[in-house]
Simulated scan of single mutants.
Amino acid sequence: MMEDELIKIWQSSPEVERIKFEKSRLMLDMDSSLKRIHRFTKYDILIGQIAAITVFLVFLLYIYFVPPVLAKIASFFIAILAVWHLTKLRKLKKGKPKETAANYLEYLKQNRHYLKTLIKITKTLVSGYALISMPGYFLFITGFYLDQIVDGSLFIKMVLIGAVGHIAAFIYTLYILKKIYRPRLQKIDELIKVMEE
């Protein structure tokens, strides 16, 4: 009954009031969406930072304590990749928009810029993993195989585990880009367009 009355009020209200109502509904939806994305990125960045520091420390130890030369070289490159990853995550953390913008439109524009940066850095990190991390991992285990520390069957298992892990991380990142970041960027663009009209 209440819903029918609201529909009647909606239909009888002037066009200007409908537009104001539609804008406010879009703004509330966007606020909720932005809060979720900021919460998600906060924890994602935190987990990424912990992982990067852990990887850096572990592979720094490997440089000194692992005997194969190829494994030492790979450990060095992976440690550098971890530091690079950490700097990208810190850039993202610092770029998070503040809720104290001059007005709501400015806040939306800041969030649009943040999401574009987030997408760009995420793509860069995926490229870094494909070009450095995966070859580094394979170089690392190849060093053990060539120094005859591991046999052929263990080497193949390690290659498969590494390939599956890297592919899973790649697919997860593509999923986040496609299902979380880009749809919110599109919603922000739409709302900015509505508010500027």
Results as ranks from 00 to 15, higher is better:
residue 43 Y to L: 05
residue 114 Y to P: 13
residue 121 I to S: 10
residue 72 K to C: 05
residue 41 T to P: 07
residue 27 M to N: 14
residue 109 K to H: 06
residue 120 K to D: 15
residue 73 I to C: 06
residue 88 K to A: 03
residue 110 Q to L: 13
residue 120 K to V: 06
residue 93 K to R: 11
residue 87 T to R: 10
residue 64 Y to C: 12
residue 40 F to E: 14
residue 85 H to N: 05
residue 59 F to D: 01
residue 96 K to W: 00
residue 123 K to S: 11
residue 93 K to D: 15
residue 92 L to G: 01
residue 34 L to V: 07
residue 21 F to D: 09
residue 47 I to D: 05
residue 106 E to T: 14
residue 22 E to T: 14
residue 23 K to R: 15
residue 99 E to C: 03
residue 81 L to S: 01
residue 54 T to I: 05
residue 78 I to R: 03
residue 122 T to S: 14
residue 107 Y to T: 06
residue 73 I to K: 09
residue 62 Y to Q: 11
residue 25 R to E: 13
residue 53 I to T: 12
residue 122 T to R: 07
residue 112 R to F: 04
residue 112 R to L: 09
residue 49 Q to Y: 02
residue 28 L to W: 05
residue 33 S to W: 00
residue 95 G to D: 07
residue 100 T to L: 08
residue 48 G to N: 09
residue 102 A to R: 15
residue 17 E to T: 14
residue 41 T to L: 07
residue 42 K to S: 06
residue 88 K to Q: 12
residue 93 K to G: 03
residue 78 I to F: 11
residue 86 L to S: 12
residue 80 I to C: 09
residue 25 R to C: 01
residue 57 L to I: 03
residue 24 S to F: 04
residue 61 L to A: 13
residue 122 T to D: 05
residue 48 G to Y: 00
residue 36 R to M: 08
residue 30 M to S: 03
residue 56 F to M: 02
residue 90 R to K: 08
residue 109 K to C: 07
residue 88 K to F: 03
residue 110 Q to M: 15
residue 70 L to Y: 02
residue 44 D to N: 10
residue 69 V to T: 14
residue 117 T to G: 10
residue 55 V to A: 03
residue 43 Y to H: 12
residue 92 L to F: 01
residue 50 I to L: 00
residue 75 S to W: 00
residue 46 L to R: 11
residue 46 L to K: 13
residue 100 T to S: 14
residue 74 A to I: 08
residue 92 L to M: 12
residue 81 L to V: 04
residue 80 I to T: 09
residue 37 I to Q: 08
residue 111 N to C: 10
residue 107 Y to P: 10
residue 122 T to E: 10
residue 30 M to D: 06
residue 17 E to V: 08
residue 79 A to G: 04
residue 99 E to S: 11
residue 101 A to Y: 08
residue 65 F to R: 15
residue 98 K to L: 02
residue 48 G to C: 02
residue 69 V to C: 00
residue 62 Y to N: 15
residue 110 Q to H: 15
residue 40 F to T: 08
residue 61 L to T: 12
residue 106 E to K: 13
residue 60 L to P: 07
